[in-house]
Structure formats: structure tokens, C-alpha cells
Write a protein that binds this DNA or RNA. Structure first.
Length: 254
DNA sequence: AACCGCACCAACCGCACAACG
DNA sequence: ACGTTGTGCGGTTGGTGCGGT
């Protein structure tokens, strides 16, 4: 037996909210707050709506800090970058964008951003950015696998196998550290160096408890802006070497 | 003017998980 | 420890508007 529904769907109003309903909901929250119980909320507020519907309406539309209007190039970058790292964790992605809701971000990705990227990088095309910079190679590979794990990743797997092997390598290092030091100590750091100058251009730690390393933290995501038609200064071609290393405090042995 | 297809986005649905008794 | 309930989330649907024919 499944769980009981949160409300009687035959009795509550559904569909688009009227301005009057919006006003009732807004007024009640301004005076009393949400009350900490959305199921009971519509009865208290005098709305003939499902509690979940009230919650959604407030969070996605009526909240005073909800930002309306088009997404900026900077927001595009953030969404792409986080999607690469996290996948469709829309609530987390939205939390990095002031005033945007998970529903907004999800709709924007599904209707616009994904199509833009797919159109810019058909499976048969070798991205110029990838030729110039290994850093961008890695990002591109991850984008492809994130957008379409089967077709795209296979298309690029030969050219960009580096990122896959790198991820595997990182997991193996972490696994070894865990074996030696225990799960609590299973953290490491990763540096990215410019081979020409041997200078460090990227750095991140890999804290215990994190499932995956966030490689894209290191690389300039500006190329995504270029793809999407919001140009910014192009990153110079850089050769990168990735290596797992001990944290600065040297507590761990590899 | 009417129709059609498409894009957009608000809203819904169902599931997983957390909180609580 | 377990069952119940509320919340949050991601996937999906359906209404609306707009452009093309």
C-alpha cells in the first residue's frame, strides 16, 4: 500500500494561480510566516490549494528575492561549470546563483543552455579549444559525457582519454590513502602546473567524504561564454599537468 | 485569418529522505 | 527500531504565446 496523498486532489484547486490567490499567500506569509508546516498552510491561510502547491508558488515565484529576467553570461558559466561537476543537482546549482530557483535553472538548462552547447559541438566536430589547451580538453570531455554519456563521450573518448585516466588515477590514489590512513584521512590535494613555466596555476583540496574530485575547479570556464555568444577574454593556451599530492600540512603519506 | 509547430516556463507528480513520535 | 508524516528534489506535463506558412 502506498502512502496517503498529502491532500484530496479532487477538492483542491489546481492549475495557474490567480493574482488574488498570490496576494492571499503573500499576505499570510508576511504576517505569519510559513508556520513551518506547508501541509497545514493552505487551511490557515484560507487557500483552497495543496500545501505543496503553496510551497512551490512561494519558493519559485512569490518570494521577494526571486530574480526574474534573462540569465547573464556569467550565470551561464556557473551553471555549465556546476552541471559538469554535479550533474542535474538543480537545487545546489541554483544555490550558487543569487535569486535563481532550481526550477528556473532546470528550465533554462533544458530549453536553452543544453541546446546551445549541443549545437556548438556536434559529435563530428573537433573543438578548437581542445586543440589549444589540454585544460579545455578535459573540460570538453566532461561536458560531453555530462550532456550525453553514451554518444558524445564515445565520440571523444579517443581524443580526450586523458581526463578519464586522470579521474581513475585520482580515485586510485585516494583509495590507497584510505587503506593506509583510514577513511577519515582520505583527503588529498591536486595541483595544476603550467609546464612551460613550472608555475602552479590551479590548486584544490580533496576533502574526506567527497565522492569525486572537482577537476573543473581548475580550468578557465571562459570558453563556455564564447561558445554561447557572450565573449570574454580568451584564456591563453596552457599545458597542464595534474598530480595528486599530499596536503600542505603533510599529514598523509601516499 | 487560420492553422500548425515549437519554445518557454509554471505547475504537477512521485519518489527519497529526514524528522519525529 | 519502526512507522508515519512533511519536505525537498528532479523529472515531466500542459498551457500559452509567438513565429512561420
Amino acid at each position: 500500500m502506498g502512502r496517503a496523498p498529502c491532500c484530496d486532489k479532487a477538492k483542491v484547486k489546481r492549475g495557474p494561480w490567480s493574482p488574488e490567490e498570490d496576494q492571499v499567500l503573500r499576505n499570510h506569509i508576511e504576517k505569519n510566516g510559513t508556520g513551518g508546516n506547508w501541509i497545514a498552510f493552505p487551511r490557515k491561510a484560507g487557500l483552497n490549494r495543496c500545501g505543496k502547491s503553496c510551497r512551490l508558488r512561494w519558493l519559485n515565484y512569490l518570494r521577494p528575492d526571486v530574480k526574474r529576467g534573462g540569465f547573464t553570461g556569467e550565470e551561464d558559466d556557473i551553471i555549465c561549470s556546476l552541471y559538469i561537476q554535479l550533474g542535474s543537482r538543480w537545487s545546489i546549482i541554483a544555490s550558487h546563483l543569487r535569486g535563481r530557483t532550481d526550477n528556473d535553472v532546470k528550465n533554462y538548462w533544458n530549453t536553452k543552455l543544453k541546446k546551445k552547447l549541443m549545437a556548438t559541438y556536434p559529435a563530428t566536430q573537433t573543438p578548437a579549444a581542445a586543440v589549444d589547451s589540454e585544460a579545455n580538453c578535459i573540460v570538453m570531455d566532461t561536458v560531453c559525457s555530462a550532456i550525453d554519456e553514451h554518444e558524445r563521450h564515445q565520440s571523444y573518448s579517443t581524443t580526450f582519454s586523458r581526463s578519464s585516466s586522470l579521474m581513475t588515477e585520482q580515485r586510485e590514489v585516494r583509495s590507497k590513502i584510505s587503506e593506509q590512513e583510514g577513511p577519515a584521512a582520505s583527503s588529498s590535494t591536486v595541483t595544476v602546473e603550467d609546464r612551460r613555466s613550472s608555475s602552479r596555476i590551479g590548486y584544490d583540496s580533496w576533502p574526506a567524504g567527497e565522492d569525486d574530485i572537482l577537476l573543473t575547479e581548475f580550468v578557465d570556464m571562459g570558453w563556455i561564454s564564447e561558445l554561447l555568444g557572450t565573449p570574454r577574454e580568451a584564456a591563453p593556451p596552457i599545458s597542464c599537468s595534474f598530480s595528486a599530492s599530499e596536503p600542505a600540512d603533510g599529514q598523509l603519506s601516499s
